[in-house]
Amino acid sequence: MRRAIAVHQRGSWSGPAADTVVLDQAHRHRRRFTFDTVSGGRVLLDLARPVRLRDGDALACDDGALILVRAADEPVMDLSAPDPAALLRIAWHLGNRHLPVQILPDGLRIRADHVIAEMVRGLGGTVTERSAPFDPEPGAYAGGHHHHHHDEEEEHEPPRPPRVLAGDHDRGA
């Protein structure tokens, strides 16, 4: 099995890719996991720390091959508003809920969520559901191209929210 051991950011590498991998947003934030390429090859992503893979990046394999990373289409909602103030208000509410958000030239993109769609409409925004790549902002503390994510384990599931213990609501937790 091939082993991908380094990441070359989009625009920083050249030449032909030996293969392509298409990953959704959740699987582009990993340190170690096994994936299948478009041609049916099997590859182990084996990095020292989690990296936020972007569409157009290349995975460098231990045999010298490069594998092109493509963002998979997934259910998303594109959000717009009648004016900049309304869009900022929507962005504030999304941030207050700690939702991953992709900034578009004329709006915002989030994962499809009917509850959030109703909130956005209630704030005067427009919601357009579609299937498209999702590439949210990494966040202020993500450290550039690296993703600040606690997924050091070899899991294929996104991290679970923290448990709330009985009585925590009384202490402001």
Rank of each mutant, 00 (worst) to 15 (best):
L99E: 09
P82M: 00
V120A: 00
V115N: 05
G167V: 03
P138G: 08
L88Q: 07
D57L: 14
R130L: 13
L45Q: 13
G15I: 02
H29C: 14
H148S: 08
R3T: 14
G124I: 00
D135L: 08
H98C: 05
P133L: 09
S12E: 15
R2Q: 15
P162N: 00
A140R: 03
R171A: 10
D63S: 15
L94G: 11
D19K: 04
I110A: 00
A85P: 10
M119S: 01
W92P: 06
W92R: 07
D24L: 05
A65H: 14
P50W: 02
Q25Y: 11
G172I: 00
P161L: 00
A142T: 01
A4Q: 03
S131H: 14
R3I: 15
P84S: 06
A6H: 03
A117P: 00
L53H: 07
R163C: 03
R160G: 02
L53E: 01
R49C: 04
Q25R: 10
R2G: 10
E74S: 12
D151S: 10
D168E: 12
S39H: 12
V51W: 08
H93D: 15
V38F: 10
P162E: 01
G11A: 01
A4I: 04
G11M: 02
A6Q: 06
V69H: 12
G143D: 02
L104S: 02
L104P: 13
I90V: 08
P16W: 09
D170W: 09
V69I: 07
H156S: 15
A60N: 10
F35E: 03
H147Y: 12
L104V: 03
G124L: 03
F134D: 04
L59S: 01
H150Y: 09
A81C: 08
F33V: 12
S12D: 13
R121C: 05
M119Q: 01
D19Y: 09
